[in-house]
Design a protein around this nucleic acid. Structure first.
Lengths: 194, 194
DNA sequence: CGGTTACGTTAATGATGACTAACATCGGCC
DNA sequence: GGCCGATGTTAGTCATCATTAACGTAACCG
């Protein structure tokens, strides 16, 4: 029945289904059976693809933070001044938040359930991602102390990641523009206010 | 040993400890034993105060959304024009986010684990809270369509609730001002951008 | 064909965890 | 002093769940 899946496609299918379930009910609220069921196999079949539930989560979070950091690095090294770079970073985060709300949700809730070796690496990638933002903001506003820029960055992430909460309120294009405008304004204010 | 606790203080102590644990590890990641242990009693003692784990969560979320909605109603009925009302609403949410980060976290993650009778009521309170915001924003910007205002409101909540992520980056007073300025600017932009 | 590899299946197994039962303690209060 | 309600305790009980075992099957490769 399974029409000769391209290698690794099953892994991805599982990761996707698990992401939705984790986002909806939390890591501990989802059973191996649930995940298997969501892709049409039942329970222990998952162990053919992952060494365990935690390993699955680890791979998921590692994938997310790698992709984010990679995209950010691309945005930063692309041509253009800091203003254009900031726009590129905004687009990275907005695109991710709009297209993968489940991944965004899991990404900032479930780090605590990742076992130690990988946990450290994910943290590292997340920190690097934040620092790309802080670096660009510092270029734009050299007088603003870094801790303030960091706090502003987290606030902007919160703003952009609100997508899962306002699902369907607006069409994607309008939402994209709205988030971009709000984030831009928030950043400007974060720096001007003293 | 327990110096004649005023009635109900134990309940509150338990609710507080449980909030911290739920925020850190998620509802299903925390055991009854954990919660008991956090207040110095062990395990099943909790059933003297709550009928079960889900009931405990329900009461927690109900308390949060009631308090928020109540504060919002107070802000709305206080004297002053829409600008002042918006400032008051901002202060409500910022104060809550800064002083009770665990409650804020639980509030927007764990609704799905509340059993049905109470779930509906919590949803209702949350909706009312959002509508207080939307009403004030609509007064300020009558030309902006409500769905857009709703999306903007959720985005502002996301921004303000970022507090748990940037814990300790800035002193509380500075954080408060920063969040206020960013939120104000984001709201203005949400409306101006066409 | 014979064997190996990739993927699944259904039964254990062993923990963990929510909830209940049976049994204290202790501070009022008559 | 003796009853009682509030509050704990420890030892079950019964589910649920992650993980493993033992056992197909089918494509592919020699």
């Amino acid at each position: 029945m399974t029409t000769t899946r391209s290698r690794g496609s099953r892994r991805l299918e599982i990761l996707g289904a698990a992401a939705n379930l984790f986002a909806a009910r939390g890591f501990h609220g989802v059973s191996i059976e649930d995940i298997g069921g969501a892709v049409g196999v039942s329970g222990p079949a998952l162990y053919r693809h992952f060494s365990g539930k935690e390993a699955l989560l680890a791979e998921m979070l590692l994938g997310i933070s790698s992709r984010l950091r990679e995209s950010a690095a691309a945005a930063v090294t692309s041509p253009g001044g800091p203003e254009e770079t900031l726009d590129a970073l905004l687009n990275v985060q907005i695109t991710f938040a709009l297209e993968q709300p489940a991944l965004i949700t899991v990404h900032d809730r479930e780090l605590g359930n990742v076992p130690e070796p990988e946990r450290r690496q994910i943290r590292r990638l997340q920190r690097l991602y934040v620092e790309e933002w802080v670096t660009v903001l510092a270029e734009l506003h050299p007088s603003c102390p870094p801790p303030r820029l960091r706090a502003a960055t987290h606030a902007v992430f919160g703003l952009l990641n609100s997508t899962p909460h306002s699902a369907g309120e607006l069409p994607a294009r309008a939402m994209r523009l709205l988030l971009h405008a709000m984030a831009r304004a928030a950043i400007a204010a974060s720096v001007n206010a003293h």
